[in-house]
Design a binder for these strands. Structure first.
Lengths: 339, 339
DNA sequence: TCTTCCGGCGAAAAGGTTTTCAGATAAGAA
DNA sequence: TTCTTATCTGAAAACCTTTTCGCCGGAAGA
């Protein structure tokens, strides 16, 4: 049998078959364990595969099997620690499954988001994980007729769509309740963007905690941010400029808490001695701020992992389910009893 | 012409052809602009595409064209701000090109890295961007015979492989020189992992700056870290435990500077009043630490964008080239003149 | 010894595109 | 009118697998 020069491009299954003196079918069977093959042929094929270091062409496999072994992830901002932590969970959830992921960003824009979804669908991803989408539930359901979708931040449950919803309201309640227990009664709130549903829920938690403690809601203590560091800083400065009195600040996410912290530092106000500060998210960096930030822990990593596992289950025709751990108050060093 | 029920699965180019009463070839030609087609057929086809909202199956296209319109990115840690910033650059570089990216993580492990590369290759990515790889240049060159590779952190230049190398040595020099100019002479160094080439180069920059200023190198002031926050904190504590005297600290990356900062805070040592601190990277968060961190700016975003553009150029058969902006000292508020 | 059955294996079709090749039609030249 | 030539279009092959179908030979049963 003549040696085939394996120098011209990557080798194909046909090449292997020829080299081993068997039919392509047999090679395929060995690769996939689809049927019994005699030992001598198996050995010959294995040797050929090794010699030519053949790896099956995934595009051809995908085309034939109707499975791309790829899932799509829609994030909103690829370089935000918020999404990264979740992506890490996804990555771990995918480990050992043979699946890879294509990550695209919707940039907090429903239009662009839908566009990216279509792009993923054209790529024949086997399923999609949508993180903090801005699309309507309707739209998601529409897409889910093509491929299964798992989304965070919505309550959904159909055969091919599943949503995980965190209880933002009680998370915020937890945060504010903690401050109240420490004796704070003048508590400022740096909110998220008004058009954001999570933000609205966190505001609701804030007001509930106050009203339960019979503290009157002071609209002047609420200032809108946009979840970024800079807006936390701006919000803080607005509070000072309008001469508000308060002993604690609750920021709707950790990033804006960071910004608020900096504004405080600039004014020479000590945290937590003069003012207490609570965030929301518990980003990886929040245990290393100065001082470490008291915050509400979102199980970001778990969300990623659980969403992935749920999606894989749906893809495999099993029932869509999955439960994420609840939000949790993490007390670090930015809060203390009011004096 | 009978209406084709477009309810059974996604529609194919064949379906469109049938619906429009033309051959598949014609549809393909219209889609790709490969040849002139009469206006009436074009209109009919366009209408059919619209009606069935057809999108070409990318796996079939890829199989046929030998181009997957996908590039692979190998990072080391998907949830590190260091890589995220670069990924954002990649994302922007890919924008509007029709390319998507599959991101995999090597977890700082040459073995796993090579494994991921093979995985990407089996997926027929059209090229690979390797960020901070641990693999030998040899190995990279080997892989580059299959697909073009652009890598950071190495000096490479072949027809199908390109490396970008930042001048870590002079970056570190800049940092230490800055401290020396401020009058510091006892400067501690929290290094990166010893087996890391970047880390070694930064150490070299540190020693050069000292020797130029005729400051004797004190091995006790150098303590090894691993680029993580925790190691910065540990390193700092080691320095205290062994009763070292110093007025400034240079951390080999921002993350370990954060850790060092926290250790300082715990000891009640003020930054920069008592001790100055310089980092390396300029992560997005570094302008919002307390106080904002003086650091060496790596053009992370630009690296991502430029690497992407270079890769695309190689893929298109053009010459491999690209230049990244130099490292730069960013003076913020963690350094001050020694008193 | 003759059926029956089964395990192992190859031939060929299929999956959805692109592309080559050649056919058909129309337009232009002689 | 007839022969070129240029244009547009369809048929079919190709990309690389997987999978169905059926063939062949040997083992088991009668």
């Amino acid at each position: 049998m003549a040696d085939i020069p394996h120098s011209s491009g990557p080798s194909t299954l046909m090449d292997v078959a020829r080299q081993a003196g068997v039919s392509p079918s047999t090679v395929s069977r060995i690769l996939n364990g689809t049927a019994k093959v005699s030992d001598d042929k198996r050995l010959a094929v294995l040797a050929a595969i090794d010699k030519m270091n053949f790896a099956p062409n995934q595009m051809a496999q995908g085309l034939k099997k109707g499975r791309s072994m790829t899932i799509g992830i829609v994030v909103q901002d690829i370089s935000s620690p918020f999404f990264d932590e979740t992506l890490r969970g996804v990555d771990d959830g995918l480990k050992g499954t043979g699946y890879a992921s294509v990550i695209v960003s919707g940039h907090w824009n429903a239009e662009e988001e839908a566009d990216r979804m279509r792009l993923l669908l054209a790529r024949k991803v086997d399923g999609i994980i949508l993180l903090s989408g801005r699309m309507s539930d309707q739209a998601v359901l529409g897409f889910s007729s093509q491929r299964p979708i798992v989304s965070t931040g919505r309550a959904l449950q159909t055969r091919s769509a599943l949503g995980f919803k965190l209880d933002n309201e009680s998370g915020a309640y937890l945060a504010v309740h903690h401050l109240i227990e420490l004796g704070h009664r003048k508590i400022a709130f740096i909110s998220g963007p008004a058009n954001n549903i999570d933000a609205a829920e966190r505001l609701a938690g804030y007001t509930r905690a106050l009203s339960e403690a019979h503290i009157e809601l002071d609209q002047n203590l609420i200032v809108e941010g946009n979840y970024h560091e800079s807006s936390g800083m701006l919000a803080m400065n607005r509070l000072f400029d309008t001469h508000q009195q308060f002993t604690a600040v609750f920021a709707a996410n950790d990033l804006s808490a960071y910004g608020a912290r900096l504004a405080l530092y600039r004014k020479g106000i000590r945290v937590p001695d003069d003012i207490s500060l609570v965030g929301f998210d518990d980003l990886p960096g929040s245990s290393y701020t100065t001082p470490p930030l008291t915050t509400i822990r979102q199980p970001l990593y778990d969300i990623g992992r659980i969403a992935t596992q749920a999606l894989l289950r749906i893809i495999n025709g099993e029932e869509a389910r999955g439960e994420v751990p609840p939000l949790e108050l993490i007390v670090r060093e930015t809060t203390r009893r009011v004096r």
